[in-house]
Nucleic acid binder design. Structure first.
Lengths: 397, 397
DNA sequence: CGATTATGCTCTAGCCGTGAACATAAGTCT
DNA sequence: AGACTTATGTTCACGGCTAGAGCATAATCG
């Protein structure tokens, strides 16, 4: 009836498949760092079972064992890691003026293989990207299990994307890319949150909040290691809640949005400078440098953004009670340059019962790479299922 | 690593237990309405497997089969339902001036067995309630699998409850009740949301939003059939986000809270009447009657609340993209009396991309009984697990 | 009243994981 | 250097599970 009832095996045949995926997932999640004996213990398997499973996975080209570097006392164990001809996820981060493609192995190692600037139009960005990806897919032939593409705007069902600051409306991303094979199109903020949940500051956290500051602000709630998707797939839009009391119309079509007060657009507006249209990242970076150096006007602008960030975070913490809050993008800089202002407004906006044990607010360890890593995780999430792994095994028998 | 990896059986022995719980869960969720053959199909089991499972469950007093009312063409099938000596959940709804106890069978049938007024103090309310529950537990002896208690305030770990309008602070509910056996203490709004997800307007919805209007306003996000819990268990606090632009201090310790603008406290304040302190429910009901009859001042107050409700809902819809929004408590009345005002501010606050297919906003079908039903569901959620069911079977061998 | 249809029951075949016994490969002690 | 200790990998018999086929059962339909 509900998804959870479907989970788990029902037949003894499905049991094997289920454990295969569990093992593969564990290898991926730990970054291929755990030894076989540790995995056997963690997953609660008998040594014999683990033996059979690893054997099968190695034979079908999904895993490859190498001797562990450090030895203890007994018989040395092996470390299962990605197979040299194993599955690959292509991850793409599309920014306002360039895109970046990475090839990622099971375990999470990502290698950037291509970076190219573009003109900011849907066709100018996505058609060459599609060609580059198709070329790479052909070269890597049957190894690629999917492509994940991160974009800086809401993604509707069918991969339709709107990016207000680039004037993209209902851009048909899958259509323009024209790729064979599985494709995941996602919001960069949601992907960054996913990355944070799997390999960043929200690892192991039951309920976490991730906020990404760029031109404006986005965010998602992370529950049990994955961002909440929303009914139509359009999550990560915390920036479009009216949390700071304004009522100015926003580019999104609503008004009073929190995202208007936090981000480089807001920074530049504070100083009376031109903003919007996807320009101004360099300008904003200079401004942050000025603030770091102590320039008074810049510092005031940064403090204002940090305060608005803190106020909004308090509201979201009141509502959702997360265990931790991570900040990425320019959020890292706001945290670094104006922590007192951020925390003052954060604490003032908390309910009394939240003040006792407020969540920690931490800058992301993944920096600007979160979106790319999240795109990878999203592809592997689709692959690390009973159906997809079985399909690979049939093809690589 | 994450919860989902733990789900499902890993050994063949656990397979049987897993399928037992799946079957029991399916019977409960459908309200004991499905026939055995329908269940067999829905769960994807073989007829032989279902035969064994139902037999075991009947023998251990968990299920009881009765002939199906309607016959088709072939051999008539049976309907598995609650066993006459089967598990019972006690559900309690504690209101500001009275509490109510219901005994609930597997399948969801709830029978109110006791209602008693109280004086509004923690001891005055909870000590007699504890005595009443202990008496009932003793009478029903080994059948009660747990007690669920709904309260109108945030619940912290350990069952500590704060109810601002009753001046309850850090009330130790489990301590005052002093019950043997499992106890679930929960927020009434979260419970109402759970009920809505299982047996109301959010049934089968992947992402839904439930809002409960009483003195003020609470709400939860429903994901995959369950309300988001929050890290410390304190969810359902959407009322304490600043979504309507105010900045007045709130009883919760924060300021500008949405809940100050929606609810009976807000209604009475609009008319310059005394409010707060848990008094005024009768007054508010008279006021709603007056608005229904067309009294102008009352209508204005209701419209203002409905507008503030709509504005907040738009913000939450922007952020979370739910498939449906349900309203319970006085939210039903606001929906009935001032739908245009509600919808106008709702639609104005939506992002453009949300306007295409906005979620439906529907009044709850469960009315004021949601909290009680949710408390029951919460108890059965704890029981319908491999461990708890196995324990019952060992005791009832 | 026999044919049809859907369901329940029983039994065998095939698969899976456990756990014990054995094999292996190190470190460690004398 | 050689024997002992320790931890891990491998193999295999065993018990348990579900699927599926075949048969029994009980209703409706013509």
């Amino acid at each position: 009836m509900r998804a959870e009832h479907e989970a788990g095996a029902t037949t003894s045949g499905a049991l094997r498949a289920h454990n295969r995926v569990r093992l593969l997932r564990a290898v991926h999640d730990c970054g291929a760092s755990l030894t076989r004996s540790a995995l056997t213990r963690d997953l609660g398997l008998a040594r014999g079972t683990a033996s059979v499973l690893v054997g099968e996975l190695a034979e079908s080209g999904l895993l490859h064992e190498e001797p562990a570097a450090e030895h203890g006392r007994g018989r040395p164990t092996q470390v299962p890691g990605p197979h040299p001809r194993g599955p690959i996820a292509l991850a793409v981060d599309v920014r306002e003026d360039a895109w970046e493609v990475a090839a990622c192995e099971l375990g999470g190692r990502a290698t950037v293989v291509e970076v190219r600037p573009h003109d900011g139009t849907p066709e100018g960005a996505l058609v060459p990207l599609g060609a580059a990806l198709r070329a790479r897919l052909e070269r890597l032939a049957p190894r690629v299990v999917g492509t994940g593409v991160a974009l800086a705007g809401p993604v509707r069902p069918g991969g339709l994307v709107d990016i207000a600051h680039l004037r993209w409306t209902s851009v048909d991303v899958p259509g323009l890319l024209a790729l064979p094979g599985p494709l995941v199109v996602g919001n960069d903020t949601a992907f960054a949150g996913l990355a944070e949940a799997r390999r960043g500051g929200l690892r192991g956290v039951a309920v976490g909040l991730h906020l990404h500051v760029d031109f404006d602000l986005g965010g998602t709630l992370i529950v049990d290691g994955r961002p909440l998707a929303g009914a139509t797939g359009v999550g990560a839009e915390f920036g479009h809640m009216p949390l700071t009391g304004g009522d100015a119309p926003c580019m999104c079509g609503a008004y009073g949005c929190w995202g208007q007060e936090v981000g480089t657009n807001a920074l530049l507006r504070h100083l009376g400078l031109a903003h919007g249209g996807g320009r101004g990242r360099d300008h904003a970076e200079r401004l942050l440098s000025a603030a770091t150096a102590g320039d008074e006007a810049a510092v005031r602008a940064v403090r204002s953004c940090a305060g608005a960030l803190g106020r909004g975070v308090s509201a979201l913490v009141n509502a959702h009670d997360p265990e931790a809050v991570t900040l990425s993008g320019f959020g890292v800089d706001l945290h670094r340059l104006a922590l007192p202002e951020l925390m003052e407004r954060f604490e003032r906006g908390l309910m009394a019962i939240r003040r006792e044990r407020p969540p920690r607010i931490v800058p992301s360890a993944l920096g600007w790479r979160g979106s790319l890593i999240g795109a990878m995780e999203s592809v592997f999430d689709a692959f690390l299922t009973v159906d997809a792994v079985d399909q690979w095994r049939r093809a690589h028998a």
